[in-house]
Design a protein around this nucleic acid. Structure first.
Lengths: 220, 220
DNA sequence: CAAACAACGGTCACCCTTGACCGTCCGGGC
DNA sequence: GCCCGGACGGTCAAGGGTGACCGTTGTTTG
């Protein structure tokens, strides 16, 4: 019937891309501000300053939109960890600076956007399957970024890898408590613990056990 | 007008309590299986095997129900951490056993129920205000439970408190990744890291740095 | 320039969820 | 036994979210 098989893929007009970026940015913002359930198509279209038809033309289904947002978010998170140029010379100071730099990435909204998607992926198979490879890749990049923070010397130390895992996961666990306990993150009681842990693992001359801060948090 | 001021609080018939427990249990189950947004009043009433009128009579508003579920959940979580009676004699073995015991609590559905509430509390002020004191209390009880796992001797060591915080938060951060990466928790690559950390902090003779497992996970 | 199709604007029907509402049943005090 | 109020069953209206649908505008290709 069709005299011409649809093998004429008109090369996707550039304005489409603009729209898509706007929408995806808005989707991430919506995730941060309203959570997964609250990231309604209406909310997103309003945040994007886009009409309903326009959004639905680019993303016919909400699920597809959020899945696309996964990729968009991963890119945004990587870009958010820009490399710092100047680091302290002294290893101890550098460790402290690196820890604080790491911790600062958990204060950004992107952390919440990710967490929202993670939780939602428990009930959405498609979302989970899109998330898994994206997060693996992202994790790799973030590990690389962490290594850059500590520098070539410190990353070569024996216990570095284990320390990196321990601190990164711990930071995530602590950051999660900020959802219901909104305190100032800059002075979190866990910071000295993380620093001491990193120092103990990476610096031979470091005397262990000087820090016993009672940085309690909600959960066990 | 009312000849009798409503100071005649008919002593709340016992069947009410039964209903409430059924509903609250169902609410927690719904949180585990469907998440906060998916914990619909209809889903809960079906899980509880209760009619709509019955549920709505006991909990007129969904918000109040979920907030009541918070308290219910806290009790359930504490009861879930029953004390083990037998522990290894050797300090090193006891540490390993305690770590595994701690980790096992993050495999229960109650962890997900809590996390769902935590995330939801970011957008629900009432929920957050109900959550905060409950979690503080719960955290205290769980810290006590953890102390019991390690025993009087080990808890007295210098770095114990910091270690407890570090491991607990790290476990939470790791457990979160299981939402999209469903692997077997019993052999998680982080277990040796936690054990080595605890040993390093609590045992003087422990040689640090023997573990450098690359237990990667998704996020940075 | 004209055809063809991508991109877009805007509406509408369907579905799900909530909670108000009203009628019924049960159980205890008088 | 009577009466009252708590406990419950079941229905319904209202609100919000989704995506199909159709008409319109813009752009590229022949």
């Amino acid at each position: 019937m069709p005299p011409r098989i649809p093998n004429d893929p008109r090369p996707l007009q550039p304005r489409s891309l603009v729209t898509q970026q706007q929408v995806l940015d808005a989707a991430v913002t919506a995730l941060i501000e309203h959570g997964y359930a609250g990231a309604t198509t209406v909310v997103i279209q309003q945040l994007a300053g886009v009409t309903r038809g326009r959004l639905l033309h680019q993303f016919p289904a909400r699920d597809q939109l959020l899945i696309a947002a996964v990729q968009h978010l991963a890119i945004a998170r990587v870009e958010a960890t820009r490399e710092r140029t100047t680091w302290p010379e002294d290893p101890g100071s550098r460790i402290d600076a690196a820890i604080e730099e790491m911790w600062s990435t958990y204060q950004q909204g992107l952390f919440w956007a990710s967490t929202e998607l993670w939780l939602a992926s428990r009930y959405n198979d498609d979302l989970r399957q899109a998330l898994l490879p994206a997060e693996r890749l992202l994790g790799e990049k973030i590990r690389t970024a962490t290594d850059l923070m500590f520098g070539r010397e410190l990353t070569a130390r024996e216990g570095y890898t284990a320390m990196r895992e321990l601190v990164n996961t711990s930071m995530r666990g602590v950051a999660l408590t900020y959802s219901f306990d909104r305190r100032k993150a800059g002075t979190d009681g866990h910071l000295p613990i993380w620093k001491a842990t990193a120092r103990g693992r990476l610096l031979a001359e470091y005397v262990d056990g000087v820090v016993d801060a009672d940085g309690h948090d909600g959960k066990g």
